[in-house]
């Protein structure tokens, strides 16, 4: 098998597909690295959530594992003081803009942030940071699903599947800076947009920003 490389993550020898990302290789081998925006199949990683930092022997400072390709004999550590601090800070920054309304959230118990909190052993609190909560209107115009931009973590997976996989070009990033949000390009309600109702976006959403309407039974 000449298209496999051998890498070492936290002392564990694993085999990885040559050319695959370090993050994918770790996930394939049940090694947890926190992440929100990575989606297998993207032509290039989004690299926006800044959660998947690791240290690679020979490289100065932490690198994001989604953008690092595996190389033979790579030695990787998923924890170091720098990595842990950066990951915690990125996590807290995301939590600082995320309403903690788990009880009423459609993604309760299937939420990437809840899972991450558990894995990282961190509370769903922004540490020393203040909360900066968005207050955007919810779009429930579509018969099949609801978009609640307030719950969105801006991982961009929905934008990717909508544009690159389904080709519907309905969902887009809007605005800049802290005001950035997900929506339709012309600000139209989803029902009037080019949305095909494929629900791929709902399936990839790691949180409760995109959810099926109550009367819709989840496929599969």
């Amino acid at each position: 098998m000449n298209n496999k490389v051998k890498i070492n993550i936290d002392g564990k020898e694993i085999q990885a597909e040559a050319g695959s990302s370090l993050l994918q290789a770790a996930l394939d081998n049940d090694i947890y690295i926190p992440h929100l925006c990575y989606l297998d199949g993207m032509k290039e990683p989004h690299a926006g959530c800044r959660l998947c930092f690791v240290e690679v022997k020979g490289l100065p400072g932490p690198v994001t594992s989604c953008t690092t390709k595996v190389e033979d004999n790579m030695v990787v550590r998923t924890h170091s003081p720098d990595v842990d601090r950066l990951v915690k800070h990125a996590y807290e920054l995301i939590i600082s803009t995320h309403p903690i309304v788990c009880k009423t959230c459609p993604a309760n118990r299937s939420c990437a942030l809840q899972d991450m909190a558990k894995e990282l052993r961190l509370p769903l609190k922004p540490g020393k940071l203040n909360k900066i909560l968005p207050d955007y209107p919810i779009d429930d115009s579509h018969p099949l699903f609801i978009l609640d931009p307030n719950l969105c973590v801006l991982c961009g997976k929905c934008v990717f599947v909508c544009n690159e996989v389904e080709g519907a070009r309905a969902l887009e990033f809007l605005f800049r800076g802290i005001s950035m949000r997900i929506g339709t390009a012309a600000g139209l309600p989803l029902a009037e947009s080019t949305c095909t109702g494929c629900l791929k976006c709902v399936d990839v959403c790691p949180v409760g920003a995109l959810s099926r309407k109550a009367n819709q039974v989840q496929a599969g």
């Binding site: 926006g48 802290i178 950035m180």
Partner: peptide, 10 residues
Amino acid sequence: SCGKCTFCRI
């Protein structure tokens, strides 16, 4: 900020 990454946006 383009808003893409956590550190810069938030």
